[in-house]
């Protein structure tokens, strides 16, 4: 499994643990923690866990083709996408505490995440190639 896939998958597990673990803490805390959860938990699950798991597995499982990006460059951009995606996620959480309601910072976090997804799309786009026609007489 490529190193970058391991990063994505490991990170997705961390976000899943946070997503499932935080309500336990919130259950013992006062309402601000519940407000925080209501606002942030959906992205912990959908982007932090689901999307990162998908990206990690796709970078590992999708077939490599001649048209695809060279492996070293793909790996490097993948790591960059990983950093951007998690920075964007963490920034959203930081904004919640440090600059609540600041739309500009939320947009910056969103654009950081978008950039990560754009990099992933560029890496994976040409790794999908049509089936080769079967040769006559081949089993």
């Amino acid at each position: 499994m490529p190193q970058v896939s391991r990063y994505f998958i490991f990170s997705s597990f961390v976000w899943l643990l946070l997503y499932t673990g935080l309500p336990l803490v919130a259950g013992m805390a006062e309402s601000p923690a519940l407000d925080y959860l209501a606002a942030m938990s959906l992205h912990m699950f959908t982007l932090g866990f689901l999307t990162q798991m998908i990206l990690g597995v796709a970078l590992w499982m999708f077939p490599r083709s001649k048209k695809a990006m060279p492996r070293e460059r793909a790996e490097m951009l993948g790591v960059f996408a990983f950093i951007l995606l998690n920075s964007g996620l963490l920034l959203r959480h930081a904004v919640y505490f440090l600059a609540p309601g600041d739309a500009a910072w939320q947009a910056i976090a969103g654009i950081t995440q978008f950039s990560a997804l754009l990099l992933f799309t560029a890496i994976i786009w040409n790794r999908m190639q049509p089936l080769k026609p079967k040769r006559a007489g081949a089993n």
């Binding site: 739309a103 939320q106 947009a107 976090a109 969103g110 654009i111 995440q113 978008f114 997804l117 754009l118």
Partner: peptide
């Protein structure tokens, strides 16, 4: 990508 852009500019 469309979803990410719209999410970024939602606020």
């Amino acid at each position: 990508l469309a979803g990410a852009v719209s999410g970024a500019f939602m606020h």
